[in-house]
């Protein structure tokens, strides 16, 4: 079942002539984990904001669970359904105490106070930040802040969570924490995840990878299908995961390993077989 549908989507910013997205089509299946790749300016971030009606399409439509984002009366319902997490965790935390911050969205939605407490506790446990609930965000590491930001979205009980480069400002440890959180949300809680990223290792974890270029879809498929197009990706200036790079080079050099391997374990296994 599709949960997000972009149809004939055209978009440009008010003060610019250049179209960010043109005749863009994309459907996202319920419960899936999609990675969106592409250069800066390829329209990924605008797309994320079009998904929950922060930006509105110039032409075409975006549907979230069948609701048109142009319908202003449905806006809150759409935003509740489709949560957005941004790059800089500092700029999305509203409150000075973590549990108060996580409570922000349910408060806006007018959820009764007893249920807010329940939702906040659940959301914080879900991202593994429950013990920190009474702390203030500026004492946390980047990865922890970002997980709190995710909890703030989870507390809305959304069906889709769109993450716009959530790991770009984090150190490797923070990245790992956030990526694991996203995977858990998707697998254990059944939340549809859309991850916008520049990191190919993260993209390789998704069920589906969509590569965008100049407001259009360049490639769309499973990570394996996408990263096996090594030459094409390199030509557009994108990368492949390091493991894939290694397996490709080994394959090119004549070793009997597959050219597109996505996990270290798999590559180790194949190399051992060769040895």
């Amino acid at each position: 079942m599709e949960i997000i549908k972009a149809e004939n989507l055209t978009f440009r910013y008010e003060d610019s002539a250049k179209k960010v997205l043109e005749q863009f089509h994309l459907t996202i299946e319920k419960g899936s984990f999609t990675a969106l790749l592409g250069h800066n300016g390829s329209g990924k971030s605008s797309l994320a904001k079009l998904f929950n009606g922060i930006l509105l399409p110039e032409g075409g439509s975006v549907y979230v669970s069948g609701m048109d984002t142009k319908n202003e009366e449905l806006l809150l319902e759409i935003r509740k359904n489709c949560g957005l997490v941004f790059q800089n965790p500092d700029n999305q935390l509203v409150a000075s105490i973590i549990e108060d911050d996580v409570a922000f969205a349910p408060e806006n939605l007018g959820v009764p106070s007893g249920e807010i407490r329940e939702r906040v506790d659940d959301a914080l446990k879900c991202v593994g930040m429950y013990e920190y609930r009474l702390r203030s965000p500026h004492h946390l590491s980047g990865g922890q802040k970002q997980r709190v930001a995710i909890a703030g979205i989870v507390a809305m009980r959304p069906s889709v969570i769109v993450l716009d480069e959530p790991t770009a400002m984090l150190d490797p440890k923070g990245r790992k924490e956030v990526v694991e959180t996203i995977l858990r949300l998707n697998r254990d809680y059944g939340i549809t995840a859309i991850l916008i990223t520049h990191n190919m290792e993260e993209a390789a974890l998704a069920d589906r990878v969509v590569v965008m270029e100049k407001g259009k879809i360049l490639l769309d498929g499973t990570p394996k299908e996408i990263f096996s197009q090594y030459e094409m990706l390199k030509q557009t200036g994108l990368d492949v995961p390091q493991i894939t790079e290694l397996s490709y080079k080994l394959h090119q050099a004549g070793f009997p390993v597959e050219s597109c391997i996505l996990s270290a374990d798999e590559l180790v296994e194949q190399i051992l077989r060769v040895l």
Partner: peptide
């Protein structure tokens, strides 16, 4: 710049002013 991003993040979290807002801690 922060204010701008914060405003978008708040809207994304369904902020729409003080009407029908509830509180975690009444």
């Amino acid at each position: 710049r922060r204010a701008d991003e914060l405003a978008v993040a708040m809207e994304s979290r369904c902020y729409h002013g003080g009407n029908d807002r509830t509180k975690l801690k009444e």
